[in-house]
């Protein structure tokens, strides 16, 4: 194994982590401020990917598609918040799990109704295709590099939004004391709709970015939804920093596990058995990591005091 391959795999892990962060950021924001578990977050990711694919196919422009993905997911998020979610804020987690589970069923079938049962086509813009040569002679796809940069930019942007702007101040205040903020004359209902739509837009954006690399199809949000939950639980629910660290941890652990475990096992057993055992353990690895972290830090790495 060369050093270049190792570094490339670490980069792949970081890139995977960044896409998880885009999902996890919205999820953790919505939970931190509104105390809501949203299983339907993966459906908003799917909505973004479908909107991007449909608009890109219709207009021929990926960039229009990308804009559409953000708009469609934000709109879907706002509508869902307005019709369903706002009735769930003072319910317990159980009701929230069930209601958003129902939303998954509804969204998945609705998408199939609108777009048919076959996966859609979505390709990257010509501008981002091809690969670049990094120091050390690593050939790396430009698109994946772009995703890493976009993810860092989004993380920085969210940090600024929350730490420095007026709406960010309200978000922080709303998270720590809802009644007090309402008493100060802030329209809590609108604030919540905006936050939910913001989280949805991030999910939709992630769906479009990842849809380029994957299959745009019904159900695409579910695997990534579970990973996003793992991320925010590891990081500490409600913490943006935790979501970022958790994403990178999960992304790198998963990628390096898939890469290294079969090789490690092949040192002690015959190769074909090592591939099977290694792959099996790799698929369980992030859940093992999560259980270990929670066993020692029951509220995640960056617990938010509440």
């Amino acid at each position: 194994m060369s050093l270049a391959l190792f570094v490339e795999q670490v980069l792949n892990g970081v890139q995977f982590g960044v896409t998880l962060f885009l999902m996890a950021a919205g999820l953790t924001l919505v939970f931190g401020v509104m105390g809501l578990i949203n299983l339907a977050h993966g459906s908003l990711y799917m909505v973004g990917a479908f909107a991007c694919a449909a608009v890109a196919a219709w207009s021929g422009s990926f960039w229009l598609g990308l804009a559409a993905s953000i708009a469609a997911a934000a709109a879907a998020g706002a509508v869902v918040e307005w019709v369903v979610i706002r009735r769930l804020y003072d319910r317990d987690h159980l009701d929230q799990v069930l209601a958003t589970f129902a939303l998954i069923l509804i969204f998945s079938e609705a998408m199939r109704w609108l777009f048919g049962p076959f996966p859609l086509y979505l390709d990257m813009p010509g501008l981002l295709s091809g690969s670049v040569t990094l120091p050390g002679g690593i050939e790396y796809p430009l698109y994946r590099l772009t995703i890493i940069l976009v993810g860092i930019a989004v993380a920085a942007g969210l940090h600024l939004l929350i730490a420095r702007t007026r709406i960010g101040m309200r978000i922080r205040a709303g998270a720590s004391d809802r009644e007090m903020v309402a008493a100060l004359g802030v329209d809590i209902a609108t604030l919540y709709t905006i936050i939910f739509a913001l989280g949805a837009a991030l999910a939709g954006f992630a769906g479009a970015l990842v849809g380029v690399n994957q299959s745009v199809q019904v159900g695409m949000g579910e695997p990534v939804l579970i990973l996003a939950f793992v991320v925010i639980v590891i990081g500490g629910i409600g913490s943006l920093k935790g979501a970022l660290v958790g994403s990178l941890l999960v992304g790198v652990t998963d990628t390096m596990g898939r890469f290294l475990l079969p090789q490690i096992f092949s040192l002690v057993m015959d190769p074909s058995q090592a591939t099977t055992v290694g792959a099996a353990l790799a698929s369980m690895l992030i859940y093992i990591v999560m259980a270990l972290i929670l066993a020692f830090r029951p509220r995640g790495l960056f617990a938010v005091t509440s």
Partner: peptide, 13 residues
């Protein structure tokens, strides 16, 4: 020879 995770969507590694 490699076995990937069922349902895996990122194949960079």
């Amino acid at each position: 020879e490699l076995f990937t995770k069922l349902g895996q969507t990122d194949y960079a590694a």
